[in-house]
């Protein structure tokens, strides 16, 4: 493994972390459920979560695709 691959791996790892934080945030943000249920705001919550998940998901895919292409080229140049 060369340095660039390690860096790409790091970027990917951090993206994963952010993703899980996001998911976790979704879980916990529903904790004060009594208040929110009283407001009757079920659907907006889902939309917010989906929007945030889509945003991070698309960024994540871009990061992964750049990382994959980079490592492919590195391999070719290395050989």
């Amino acid at each position: 493994m060369n340095r660039n691959q390690i860096l790409c791996g790091l970027v990917t790892g951090i993206t994963f972390l952010v993703c899980t934080i996001t998911l976790f945030a979704q879980e916990t943000s529903e904790l004060p459920g009594a208040q929110l249920a009283a407001q009757g705001l079920g659907r907006p919550y889902w939309h917010v979560f989906i929007a945030y998940a889509i945003a991070i998901g698309i960024v994540f895919f871009w990061v992964v695709s750049i990382g994959r292409r980079l490592s492919e080229i590195e391999k070719k140049i290395g050989s």
Binding site: I14, T15, V18, Q26, S29, P44, H47, Y52, I56, V59
Partner: peptide, 30 residues
Amino acid sequence: MIGLVWLGVVYWMSFFWVSTEVTQGIAQRI
């Protein structure tokens, strides 16, 4: 990497920190 960590902070802020907008409610967080 800075951007991703920063984005994580922003996600935290917009889920837990920022106050909910009055007229639109939670959906405004999008």
